[in-house]
């Protein structure tokens, strides 16, 4: 479904150049669950940003369902991202002045999709993620695990084909981590969504169909 060829990202910092991503080839199928792991600073976040259309590669191409994607226009990238990719962040990033339901519906505001249908879907997601009784809570009234479940619902609301999660459990305890990973895995299976999870936590790796190890901007066996 998503294929990256020769993806390279070079950061220029004065005289320093950082090869954050070094000619990476990569492919993920629809519904597949991939874990990416590696040492800090090896380029995992950079990788997610590029395949999530948040950042442009220095070199290389990205294909979505066989079609080459263009990085030339940031607004086109935004629209592509909105329609096909859902993000789950390490820092969760809920909007503090929106309640749970409004946070989940936020992406719909920009995609212009039907709000009533969205609300129905949001309630369904709240049910699946077992936080229906938190719908009108504000983020500062939620536990870390609950907040991350809200973020997963928000990532799913636009029915993306791909979810990118950057260390979704690193700020949670072991128990909530496994709940979150189980929910990600279940929703991925239920909605046939591909998931790429970046993690440092060895306990997370078994949830993936496959694990990719990254070292100095490259995937290694």
């Amino acid at each position: 479904m998503l294929k990256g060829e020769n993806l390279t990202k070079i950061f220029q910092r004065g005289r320093n150049t950082v090869n954050a991503l070094d000619s990476v080839n990569f492919c993920i199928d629809r519904g597949e669950f991939v874990c990416v792991t590696g040492r800090s600073g090896c380029g995992k976040t950079t990788f997610l940003n590029i395949i999530g259309f948040l950042d442009t590669p220095t070199k290389g191409d990205l294909y979505f369902e066989g079609k080459k994607l263009s990085f030339s226009n940031s607004e086109d990238m935004t629209i592509f991202r909105r329609e096909h990719v859902g993000f789950v962040f390490q820092k969760i990033y809920l909007q503090s002045h929106l309640n749970v339901l409004e946070n989940i519906l936020l992406p719909l505001r920009y995609s212009g999709k039907n709000y009533d249908e969205g609300t129905k879907k949001a309630n369904e997601l709240l049910e699946i993620l077992e936080i229906s009784n938190r719908a009108d809570f504000f983020p500062n009234e939620l536990s870390g695990g609950e907040a991350q479940r809200v973020a997963i619902a928000r990532a799913l609301i636009n029915s993306p084909e791909l979810i990118l999660a950057d260390e979704p459990t690193s700020e949670l305890d072991t128990k909530s981590s496994s709940v979150i990973m189980k929910l990600l895995r279940d929703t991925s299976d239920k909605y046939n969504v591909s998931v790429i999870t970046v993690t440092h936590d060895p306990l997370v790796l078994p949830y993936g169909d496959r694990v990719l190890y990254m070292e100095d901007g490259k995937f290694v066996k």
Partner: peptide, 16 residues
């Protein structure tokens, strides 16, 4: 700023 960043990541265009 960070609120704007998250909204952009979630698909908000500049005009939004």
């Amino acid at each position: 700023k960070s609120e704007i960043a998250v909204k952009r990541a979630l698909g908000a265009e500049k005009k939004h």
